[in-house]
Design a binder for these strands. Structure first.
Lengths: 148, 148
DNA sequence: ACAACTATTGCAACTCAGTCGCAACAAGTG
DNA sequence: CACTTGTTGCGACTGAGTTGCAATAGTTGT
């Protein structure tokens, strides 16, 4: 159950500028790719898409920009259960946290939002006296279509 | 709050033999390292420890054995929020699932067990009609000692 | 105890994700 | 418009994990 979460395009760019981050042609391209993505992209996919907007974008700039966005808490980094390779996937951090569900058979990724997830995080913050910045819950198994 | 979870040593070996998996000197060494570990180890640490028991153990055998244990659902693979590098950590799968909490400042790893985690998983299995094999929840942030 | 079958191993070479140092460059400031 | 300083592309590098292959060693049946 993915949530349709719309957002003003260019928002990421505005947020970074507000925080005094210098805006370059390459960053604009990368941010735009991340904002308009309709699925989880890995670094090399982000690179390829960004190069269509600005062919000068380099691999290392993608990684550096992803690091920047992570530090600012604007994106989440995912493994998606390593269904293909060891790399990471990225998504814009919006609204409520959600669970990523990966079918180990067909590879389908589903997102799931639950009050119980929020409640668990609240309990953890209280009982462990811990301040949560990122919480990543990934689940692997078999979806209804794949399990016999 | 880590749970002290004791286990009969050699259990992993017995379980694998039961399932018809051939037992070798190298595997015995690797399994013993994993069973007696008192903290999360990565592949290279497992290799070094295993080589003390059997110097012939090779890196590739460690990876192949970890793959075997993962396929049999006997260990869990963790990132621990990539506090140090991109590698993975491993732990024996025992009892109830727990949350891994990583302090981004001091690097301390805490484990947290909660009925709400189990409840969330049950809800997900029902509402998404999904059969869970692995569920990994990792949390990053600041522990009480590090947050000012 | 032994032969035969086949899974497993060590080795070395490889792939792939991600990082880093550095000189050239360009964004923002006044 | 010049200056300062953060950012970039490049290329070389690191480290995790994988793979093909010939040699080796568990296991099974006799």
């Amino acid at each position: 159950m993915p949530l349709p979460q719309t957002e003003i395009p260019g928002r990421l760019q505005a947020l970074l500028s507000e925080r005094g981050v210098r805006m370059t042609e390459q960053r604009r391209a990368i941010l735009s790719v991340i904002e308009t993505a309709n699925k989880h992209l890995d670094a090399s996919q982000i690179l390829r898409h960004a190069q269509k907007l600005d062919p000068s974008v380099d691999r290392s700039t993608v990684y550096r920009t992803l690091g920047l966005l992570k530090r600012h808490g604007m994106i989440d980094e995912l493994d998606l259960m390593h269904l293909k390779g060891e790399g990471h996937y990225y998504e814009r951090k919006l609204g409520r946290g959600h669970v990523h569900i990966a079918c180990l058979s067909c590879g389908k990724i589903t997102e799931f939002v639950s009050e119980r997830f929020d409640s668990l995080k609240r309990q953890l913050e209280q009982e462990c006296r811990f301040h949560i910045l990122v919480a990543r819950l990934e689940v692997g198994g078999y979806c209804s279509a794949c399990r016999r």
